[in-house]
């Protein structure tokens, strides 16, 4: 499975990458905001997108909307991992078609649960 991690903080990308590797996913690409993620999503065949919200350039919510608007990625599962914890933001992400939402700081167990749930739903 090919995964794209989008976060402006390199430390957070490394953490998520390590956690995903721990869960058995090793085909991972990184991008530091929506603007650099979009071309990758257009050309690469990604199966899963993990994105932060608050990033300079294109924030995660705009990236999510752009992903849903492109035919190639319209159905791509998207997990948001973010420090944004306002209710209105979670609602906005849900309305934009997010598949899962994790608030930072989070645990490895939470990440595993949400990923499992997302793929269960897609396969089911």
């Amino acid at each position: 499975m090919k995964i794209l991690i989008v976060d402006d903080f390199a430390t957070m990308r490394r953490i998520i990458k390590n956690l995903l590797r721990d869960l058995g996913y090793s085909n991972i690409t990184e991008a530091d905001d929506g603007n650099s993620a979009l071309p990758l999503l257009q050309t690469g065949n990604f199966d899963f997108l993990v994105t932060d919200w608050n990033m300079p350039g294109m924030p995660g919510i705009e990236l999510l909307k752009a992903v849903r608007a492109m035919p190639k990625t319209a159905k791509l599962p998207v997990l948001m991992v973010t420090a944004e914890s306002k209710r209105e933001q979670i609602v906005a992400a849900a309305q934009a078609g997010v598949n899962g939402y994790i608030v930072k700081p989070f645990t490895a167990v939470t990440l595993k649960e949400k990923i499992d749930k997302i793929f269960e739903r897609i396969q089911g």
Binding site: W53, N54, P59, A83, E84, S85, K86, R87, E88, Q89, I90, Y101, I102, V103, K104, F106, T110
Partner: peptide, 22 residues
């Protein structure tokens, strides 16, 4: 609008406090 929530900095009802709330 954006950024991590600092305890006590915004009306508490506008903010979720845990993954369970989300």
């Amino acid at each position: 609008v954006h950024g991590p929530h600092i305890p006590g900095s915004a009306p508490e009802e506008e903010v979720v406090h845990s993954q369970d709330d989300v």
